[in-house]
Design a protein around this nucleic acid. Structure first.
Length: 395
DNA sequence: TCTGGGGTCCTAGGACCC
DNA sequence: TCTGGGGTCCTAGGACCC
């Protein structure tokens, strides 16, 4: 058992893109609207629905056309990423007033270690202050989960929306977490929950029953099973690493085409455009990458990724271009494509490059040295006397 | 109903080396 | 002579999340 129980807050901005839209266009307040889509091409999906739209049965990931069919007077607000970035920054800056130990879970959610602040003020009071402060200063409604681990805090913040505050202690797990449908568990997605439901696991509580273990192992690996079990029982991580996600591990750019395109030159020129914009971002953020790849989706929406790892980390455009060109030539054979994209993998900070390289050389030298010593030891074992005599001579 | 775009993490197999 | 196991890197794909 842990001696020091941590107090982790998970703070989730409610309908974040919709909240930003209302800040910018106050007339949207209390209206049924959605953010997302690309109305000019009549394609795309709902990114975020306002709470009024949700009452009508409109939800995120829904096709815009379907949403319009439900409510023809639905207002469609285009995505404005600059706006979200701006309010996201204000959100995290606001939280830093309470604790420096913050993990940016995504653009609109944060994990904060509130153990220290809770020594002088009750966690519930702190949560109320944060919730009211975000609303008063930035017009951003949020839900807050308070728990001893990151996972439990995340589950707790989901329990009351909007504007909820939920405490989930280890002793509350059976009463508050166990009754939830298994599909509401963070990490269980649309592929896994039907499998679990099919074998009779309907709730999070049922998942934990020892007599169900064998059945569950028929639909997932033993390591996944134990990791989910640890999450549920409050045995997973309570450590917040602010540096996690600070540097991207990959960056990418992709686009869905309006129709299935099969002109090789046209597809390649789109790829070149995407390489340019992705490469610009790489340089702007002072990153280097080692792997470049292309992503293609055919008219059946079957995805193919093809990548190539270069000999070294680099930000040299021509190297990426050449690799991309050969990947395209080797893998594209004239099929109609609905989506094309470019991605960089194995991304690191440019300033870490020297360090990494030195580390590599160091490891390489160490490895060679060890080999040499091994060889010497072998010889030593074979001819102990002559070698020791030799050493004596030289010393 | 023809289906976004940007990410993270995990797994598994093959190649290669020791 | 045959066989083996472990570690690391690369590639591809899948699941999941916002």
């Amino acid at each position: 058992m842990k001696n020091n129980i941590k107090i982790i807050f998970h703070i989730d901005l409610n309908a974040f893109f919709a909240s930003c839209a209302v800040i910018k266009e106050p007339y949207l307040k209390d209206k049924a609207f959605v953010v997302g889509g690309s109305s000019t091409f009549r394609r795309g999906v709902v990114s975020t629905a306002s709470y009024e739209a949700r009452k009508l049965g409109i939800h995120s990931a829904m096709n815009i056309n379907d949403a319009m069919r439900i409510f023809p007077k639905l207002i469609i607000v285009p995505l404005q990423f600059g706006l979200y970035q701006k309010y996201s920054k204000l959100f995290f800056a606001f939280l830093k007033q309470y604790s420096p130990i913050i993990l940016e879970g995504s653009i609109d959610e944060a994990y904060v270690d509130m153990t220290e602040p809770s020594l002088t003020k009750h966690p519930l009071e702190l949560a109320k202050e944060i919730q009211e402060g975000l609303m008063r200063e930035h017009q951003l409604p949020c839900s807050i989960g308070i728990a001893p681990t990151l996972f439990l805090a995340k589950m707790a913040s989901d329990m009351q929306k909007p504007l909820g505050i939920t405490v989930l202690r280890r002793k509350d797990i059976v009463s508050k977490l166990f009754p939830l449908p298994i599909r509401e568990m963070y990490g269980i997605g649309k592929k896994t929950y039907p499998k679990l439901e099919a074998i009779g696991i309907q709730t999070i509580g049922a998942f934990t029953k020892p007599e169900h273990k064998d059945q569950i192992l028929s639909v997932m690996s033993e390591s996944s099973y134990h990791s989910y079990l640890d999450h549920i029982m409050g045995r997973s991580s309570d450590f917040i690493d602010p540096k996690r996600y600070a540097i991207p591990k990959s960056i990418s750019n992709e686009t869905t085409l309006n129709y299935a395109m099969d002109e090789s030159d046209a597809i390649f020129s789109i790829l070149v455009d995407m390489l340019q914009t992705t490469h610009e971002r790489l340089v702007k953020e002072e990153l280097v990458a080692k792997t470049i790849g292309i992503k293609l989706k055919d008219s059946e929406f079957i995805t193919t990724n093809r990548s190539q790892t270069l000999t070294d980390y680099t930000d040299d455009y021509q190297s990426f271009f050449d690799a991309m060109e050969s990947l395209f030539e080797e893998n594209y054979h004239g099929e109609p494509m609905r989506l094309v994209g470019v991605f960089f993998n194995s991304v690191i900070l440019k300033k870490d490059l020297k360090k990494d390289f030195n580390l590599f050389t160091y490891q390489e030298l160490t490895r060679r040295e060890e080999q040499i010593y091994k060889t010497i030891r072998k010889i030593n074992d074979k001819y102990p006397k002559s070698i020791s005599q030799g050493i004596k001579k030289t010393s």
